[in-house]
């Protein structure tokens, strides 16, 4: 009797999980598997083309110094962007979660989420208008300060970082906000009763308890930024070639899907490797 009930429960669980897993199978696993297959081919298996299995696409990564150099550049930019997102996002989340109450908090949260509602391309284009020589930023500074101000930010790596931080900081704010909001107010009151100052409360209670949220936010930022191509292309000018733009070129410009797929999987492997290497430290801080 109990056995049958258990089996029925398992069946119900399966029925409820099935759509999600089927969706994952079709939307994630199959395309990834197709790409993994492409990455091992010498040419796209189209009509009239000769192809065979090969590892040459992966070897191509090592044959040219350009690919490792660009991968390093992409990872470096991703690290800087992640750090800046944390530095900018945490105080914002702190104020939202612990200081502001009521309707104004809702309004501010909405403002944080608002950029998500606009097209990413539009956001990046607006930065090109702001940053270009003689653009909005230069014009505004020239109006306030004496002389013609030329920041020279357009088409530099700094411009790429600015654009990426703007695009990804909401992830950190939202994850940190959720973590901070979940902290029991009585903990803080107890700390205060025991004579802890604001800084000590921040360091000993808020930061450690918000850490899972910050780490989740950092991962959410680091992984896509490492593969980003649109922001570097539009904001970086001639400095904007990254591992992501090289992969995009293989797919879009030269129709070399096998090499593009192989480069994508190398990026995926490196990012997973970084996360795996960091995971003991992360687990300790989360535990």
């Amino acid at each position: 009797m109990a056995d049958r009930g258990e089996r029925a429960a398992t069946g119900r669980a399966l029925a409820m999980l099935a759509p999600a897993y089927l969706w994952l199978l079709f939307a994630v696993f199959l395309p990834l598997a197709a790409m993994a297959w492409f990455s091992l081919l010498s040419d796209l298996p189209l009509r009239g083309r000769e192809w065979h299995l090969t590892l040459a696409n992966y070897r191509a990564f090592l044959d040219s110094p350009a690919y490792p150099a660009l991968l390093w550049k992409s990872l470096r930019i991703a690290a800087v962007v992640t750090l800046l997102c944390l530095v900018a996002g945490f105080p914002c989340a702190l104020v939202l979660a612990r200081v502001i109450r009521g309707r104004s908090r809702e309004a501010l949260l909405l403002l944080v989420i608002l950029p998500f509602w606009s097209n990413a391309l539009v956001r990046v284009f607006s930065w090109t208008i702001l940053l270009r020589p003689g653009g909005v930023l230069d014009a505004a500074l020239s109006a306030v300060l004496p002389g013609e101000v030329r920041l020279g930010l357009a088409f530099t790596e700094t411009a790429v970082v600015i654009g990426l931080v703007h695009s990804y900081v909401p992830y950190v704010i939202l994850t940190a906000y959720l973590a901070l909001q979940a902290i029991d107010q009585s903990l803080i009151e107890a700390a205060r009763a025991l004579g802890a100052g604001r800084l000590r409360i921040l360091r000993r209670i808020l930061l450690p308890l918000a850490l899972p949220g910050l780490i989740a936010g950092a991962v959410l930022v680091f992984v896509p930024v490492a593969g980003s191509f649109m922001e570097p292309r539009l904001l970086g000018g001639r400095m904007g070639t990254t591992f992501g733009t090289v992969i995009e070129d293989q797919f879009v410009a030269v129709f070399n899907w096998p090499l593009g797929a192989a480069l994508s999987f190398i990026l995926l492997a490196v990012v997973l490797g970084i996360l795996a290497a960091a995971s003991p430290a992360l687990r300790r801080s989360l535990g």
């Binding site: 040219s64 110094p65 350009a66 070639t241």
Partner: peptide, 16 residues
């Protein structure tokens, strides 16, 4: 030839 040109061009851009 196309691939040789692409590699040359990517190496130049990567060196920036």
């Amino acid at each position: 030839t196309r691939e040789a040109y692409l590699l040359l061009w990517q190496e130049l851009k990567a060196a920036q």
